[in-house]
Amino acid sequence: MPTRLRPYLLLAPTLAVILLLFGGGVLLALMQSVGYLPFLGRTEITLDAYRAILQQAAFSQSFFLTLWVALASTAVSTLLALVCALALRRPFRGHRLITFIFQLNIPIPHLVGAVGILFLFSQSGFLARLANLAGLISQPADFPAIVFDPWAIGIILEYVWKTTCFTGLILLATLQGVGNDLETAAQNLGANRWQRFRYVTLPLLTPSMVSASVLVFAFTFGAFEVPLVLGQRFPSMLPVLAYRSYVDIDLNARPEAMAMNVIITLLIGVLIFLSTCASRTKRCAVNGER
């Protein structure tokens, strides 16, 4: 086997799957959003679906809600993950146990996480009952509305709960990968704790943090199960709105569902392109300073 072709051959099966199933799916979504379905005998191209959804107030409300949830979940979970990773970095008594607990919710499906949050935070849930026991509230309505609430706090809580551990483990792996040498060197040069963190540890972690945040942001923007369990019916998150339109009794809503999919795809693409660009230039700037 010629060496030049080798990587391509190794990649062929994966690329075939991704191109056919995923690329094909996105392309078909695009085609259906403009009403072009040659195998069903429809070849007229129309932008009606886009026009229809952009005129809906529900769509823009859903969009801002989704953006808010994705941004808030990503920011909070990345920050918490950083704190956790730093705390779990060096061995201590019980390190193994706590690291194991930290990994524990990696395999928990989001659906179960959402059920847990629901039972915990609903106005008659476990915490509300504890608050009642402590004399803080008298009836369920006194407990703040955290699930099915307009700010989607319940959804964000679930995402933070799940993704903090995910991001934290990535950061932990990165920290273990780079070791202590640089920080020890900085300490020998007289850097204090904050300076070591700010100028050594943080820059080392930044690429991993950006990567993990991108994954988390994209996931929370496009996920379906958690909003379905913990979200208000109106406005709903974009993926839920798209799915509801897709399974609407009226088949004419399907192009609209596809148009939402296309818009979600484009939006995520643009936002992530911008964020990686921004972080790259920042990284470049830091390098330039040196």
């Binding site: 069903l40 897709y246 399974v247 609407d248 009794i249 088949l251």
Partner: peptide, 17 residues
């Protein structure tokens, strides 16, 4: 979970021939 799901499913099958 919801009635319209199967209505849509049969409609989808009709559409796909």
């Amino acid at each position: 979970a919801d009635g319209p799901e199967y209505v849509n499913k049969v409609l989808g099958e009709q559409q796909a021939g």
